[in-house]
Lab assay of single mutants.
Amino acid sequence: MGFKLLSKLLVYLTASIMAIASPLAFSVDSSGEYPTVSEIPVGEVRLYQIADGVWSHIATQSFDGAVYPSNGLIVRDGDELLLIDTAWGAKNTAALLAEIEKQIGLPVTRAVSTHFHDDRVGGVDVLRAAGVATYASPSTRRLAEVEGNEIPTHSLEGLSSSGDAVRFGPVELFYPGAAHSTDNLIVYVPSASVLYGGCAIYELSRTSAGNVADADLAEWPTSIERIQQHYPEAQFVIPGHGLPGGLDLLKHTTNVVKAHTNRSVVE
């Protein structure tokens, strides 16, 4: 069995187990497998329904001669939608809004960016022009300005110390501490036991640490421990890039980060 097929099978099995364990909360999309990078042309966006009122959005972007996937989250909030992270750029984010209108038909009224990198804030200006209120932590807003990236308009308070959590509509926002970046936030959907790890969490097929220019490698494993301790009931975990899975993604990420750190020390 090929690795790609095995990865998709694991996603399907995880979703099936969740649907059985929580039949009222989960209505997993039966329309197909989780979209992969090879299936999404740059400039297009796919939506994948995880649970009743919960979707991931998947886009792709060219970077350094390669094409990478990027995940975000959409959560229903009454007759409105909360968006977590842009679709990595203005063109993708405009396509995301169009796809949401086509498939869901509810307005996106608020959006949260989970850290300051372009795959999370690139497209904020498109959201703002569409009347979406954009939010991020003060740290993310400051770092985005320093980096020359787009800056969300509103500040999220109460997320300055490791372990801080605040309720934001249908989700809980959690600051686990520094990891992929010093400002990275985690998003949890309690009604569906869905954990969105953003770039602080890796997919299972990833074996290298990737972009760690703004990471705190020493603190990252401790931050992941905080996530595990705060959300032990999480059933569906979405990484910032690639295929979702279960809580095993947290341990896998820790292993990859520690291996990278150990290699760096040896070198």
Rank of each mutant, 00 (worst) to 15 (best):
K4F: 04
S7D: 08
A15M: 15
A15T: 05
S16G: 09
I17K: 05
M18A: 06
M18G: 06
A19T: 14
A19I: 13
A19H: 03
A21G: 10
S22P: 14
L24P: 10
A25C: 11
A25K: 13
A25L: 08
F26C: 11
F26I: 06
V28R: 10
D29A: 08
S30F: 15
V37A: 09
S38Y: 13
S38M: 15
P41R: 09
V42W: 14
V45W: 02
R46M: 15
L47N: 00
L47W: 01
Q49H: 14
G53S: 10
V54M: 15
S56Y: 08
S56W: 09
H57P: 00
A59R: 03
T60A: 10
T60Q: 15
Q61E: 07
Q61H: 06
F63A: 11
F63K: 13
A66Y: 14
V67Q: 09
P69Y: 14
S70Y: 04
N71A: 13
G72T: 02
V75M: 05
D77I: 04
D77P: 01
G78K: 06
D79M: 08
D79S: 13
E80C: 13
E80A: 11
L81I: 13
L81T: 07
L81W: 00
L82S: 06
L83R: 01
T86K: 02
T86L: 01
W88F: 14
G89L: 03
N92R: 12
A95F: 15
L96G: 02
E101G: 13
E101A: 13
K102Q: 08
Q103D: 13
G105N: 15
V108L: 15
R110E: 08
S113A: 15
S113Q: 05
H117C: 00
D119E: 01
R120E: 04
R120V: 03
V121E: 01
V124Y: 03
V124H: 09
D125T: 07
V126P: 03
L127Y: 04
R128M: 13
R128T: 07
A129M: 15
A129N: 07
A133L: 14
A136N: 03
A136M: 04
P138L: 11
T140G: 03
G148A: 14
N149I: 15
N149V: 13
I151F: 15
I151D: 02
S155L: 12
S155T: 13
S160T: 14
G163F: 07
G163A: 09
G163W: 09
D164F: 09
A165M: 15
V166H: 05
V166Q: 15
V166D: 04
F168A: 02
G169Y: 04
G169A: 04
E172P: 02
L173K: 00
L173E: 02
F174N: 01
Y175T: 02
P176L: 02
A178E: 10
A178W: 10
A179W: 03
D183H: 01
Y188P: 01
V189L: 08
P190A: 06
S191R: 07
S191K: 09
S193Y: 12
Y196M: 06
G197E: 01
G197S: 02
G198A: 05
A200F: 03
L204E: 07
S205M: 08
R206H: 11
T207N: 15
A209L: 14
G210I: 04
G210D: 08
N211F: 10
N211C: 04
V212W: 04
D214E: 10
A215G: 12
D216R: 13
D216K: 13
D216T: 11
L217A: 14
A218N: 12
T222E: 12
I224W: 01
I224A: 05
I227S: 04
Y231E: 01
Y231L: 04
P232A: 09
F236D: 15
F236A: 12
I238D: 00
G240S: 02
G240Y: 00
G242P: 03
L243T: 06
P244T: 05
G245N: 05
G246F: 05
D248W: 09
D248Y: 12
L250K: 01
L250G: 01
V256T: 14
V256D: 03
V257F: 06
K258S: 13
A259G: 11
H260R: 08
T261F: 15
R263I: 08
S264D: 14
E267G: 14
